[in-house]
Amino acid sequence: MNALARLHAAMEGTPADRIPVFCNLLDQGARLLGIGPREYYASGEHVAEAQLRMREKYGYDNLWGLFYVGREAEFFGCREMVYAEDGPPNVGHMVIRTVEDVPRLEPPADVLSHPAFEQPRKCFDILRREAGGRFPICAYVTATMTLPVLLMGMERWLPLLLTGPRTLRDELLAKCHDFFVSQVRACRAAGADVIVYSNPFGSTDLVPMSFFREQSLPWIERDIEAAGRAGLVYYGGAARVNPVIETVLERTRVEAFYLSPLDDVAEGRARIAGRALCCAALNDIPMIDWAPAQVEQEVKRLVEAGKPGGRFLFGTLLMPLAIPEVNIRALVAAACRYGALDA
């Protein structure tokens, strides 16, 4: 059974040899190729090569077309990324400095043909050519309500969202929605099997439940309706999603939830109740300092909480660069061992 078939089996609740194991390594690619992050992320060929080699090296199931979170700002005219040798790039130029910039903001009409998609497209092309149909190729797309964070920073977006002029707020959200839809289509056309729909504003860690129901949810429904549910995974950007699972399921019929490490996996599985794929995420920040035996114990705990009843996937967050290789190997080995199924 190949990894893509394993993922499909998990999503449909049909027999498989083991649960899918997703390991989300991005910045590690530059280190593997022995080059700096600026050079690495400038080339779709580099990213694709590293993704293929890292998957081969550790033996997990997925591949990423994502370069780094924040790249979406480049489609709107962001001129500077701040690169670090020990972590992911940061958005260094905010496209929106004041709310007066909102009417001037121009989302690209077509993501697929946009220059900022040239290197990701090359990456997807190589992944599809080398591994398409065998390994799930993942894309990461920021939800409409979260995208303004990359364009103006959270410290400007949150006040505008909560207390700012309603017309400008809605205009910005409408523009972000158009971009979101175009980006999902572009990623699918380029070869993505999985769309990770990232939305901290779809979590009650970010906004209270009343705001979630009245403001976040309508945009979530609109996003998912326009993008289509195929391969789409609801992800709170590491924020907890358990409290909203039933509502989101009812209103969108989304087919997969990616829990936060701060969510209780058994509770998440119970809330999903077999109606969608439940993805558990290991808390990979303390993993930097753990011994391999601790990694194994934590993987075992999560898999035992999530595996009963099926439709379960084991994964990580975007893994920090400081995690030792020996722990990544321990994680994958334990997830495959404890995630074995009676095919």
């Binding site: 949150l158 006040p159 909560l162 207390t163 009650t204 860690d205 970010l206 906004v207 209270p208 705001f211």
Partner: peptide, 14 residues
């Protein structure tokens, strides 16, 4: 247990 959301913290502080 449920905590306060970031939005609630933000408004409370502001």
């Amino acid at each position: 247990d449920g905590g306060l959301s970031v939005a609630q913290h933000f408004l409370a502080a502001q």
